[in-house]
Amino acid sequence: MIEPTDRQITGCHGELAVREWSAPHPGWIALIAHGYGEHSGRYQWVAEQLVGARALVWAPDHIGHGRSPGERVLVEDAETIVADLETVRQRVTAEHPDLPVVLIGHSMGGLLAARHAQLHQQHLAAVVLSAPVLGTWHVLDLLEHDEIPDTPIDPATLSRDPEVGAAYLADPLVWHGPFRRPTLQAIDQCLLAINEGPTLDRPTLWVHGEDDELVPEADTRTGIDRIRGDDFHEHIYPGARHELFNETNKAEVMNDVLTFIGRTLNT
């Protein structure tokens, strides 16, 4: 196991907790944006695979998530988290100015990564979107209620591996409560901004599980079609659920991701 180094970086609303995993002689930077309610520590296996491919990995806990400060899972403006990602990118590239940056976002982190890429494409070598919240998202229907129902994420939707769901439920840094109205509103506004924003001119890979009930592939595709650039690639995995990096075929997914990155960076 590769132990991460803990960093603290000042974001828009406080000191962000950032995990860093490093190869001895890194050839590129992987910046990971995690999903709603979780934290960067859940990407240990992912980081180890990236380090094995000569990456320097930085992964912040978004404000209100994991070990970062703030009211739990409260996001009043998604653009501030996008700005935090840019702050982290600036910090890591200041320390490693010659290394290209690949932005990897999962779920809500895919939403944030897509928006970041729209705003800062010139600073990225490539983008990887894992089951991103794009286009439409059925969870936003909760906004129609006067009081948001207590409908936490069902761990069975994450992976076909039951141990993933069990670990998710037992993780004290994961949020297990209801969605917050401001957060859903912020996601809704970010979706609108992405739909009205530019296409992605950076090489982009979209990976998604065919049996993803939490973020259905068909809903995401409506947003993907709005931002799809000329250098765009996709893999849809039959039978896979939401967390592809924790799925029973995660080795296949990671191989596809690393193949895409290696081809893009010519490594």
Rank of each mutant, 00 (worst) to 15 (best):
D219I: 01
P198E: 12
G239R: 09
T80V: 10
V127Q: 02
T220S: 14
T80S: 12
H138Q: 15
D161E: 14
E217F: 08
D150K: 09
V57A: 06
T93L: 09
L143T: 10
I9V: 14
P100V: 04
P172T: 01
S107A: 15
H34V: 03
R180N: 03
P132I: 06
S107V: 09
V257I: 14
R160V: 07
G165Q: 03
G11I: 02
L124P: 00
E210M: 14
I9R: 02
T93M: 13
G37V: 06
A186Q: 04
H176L: 08
V215D: 01
A78T: 07
P152V: 11
T259W: 13
E252K: 14
L74C: 08
I187E: 00
I153L: 13
T264H: 10
E15N: 15
V174L: 01
A30K: 01
R67H: 12
A114W: 00
E196V: 04
P149D: 11
P152I: 09
P26C: 08
H116S: 12
M108T: 12
Q185F: 07
D61R: 03
L124Q: 04
Q118A: 04
D211N: 10
H242G: 01
G52F: 08
L124G: 01
G209C: 12
T87Y: 02
D212E: 09
R181W: 08
Y168R: 07
I9Q: 03
H208F: 08
T220H: 02
H25Y: 11
A218E: 13
A193L: 12
E95R: 12
Q122V: 11
I81W: 07
D161N: 14
A218K: 10
D225Y: 08
Q122E: 15
A23I: 07
Q118P: 04
H123D: 11
T10G: 11
H13Q: 14
R19C: 02
H235K: 14
M108W: 06
H123Y: 09
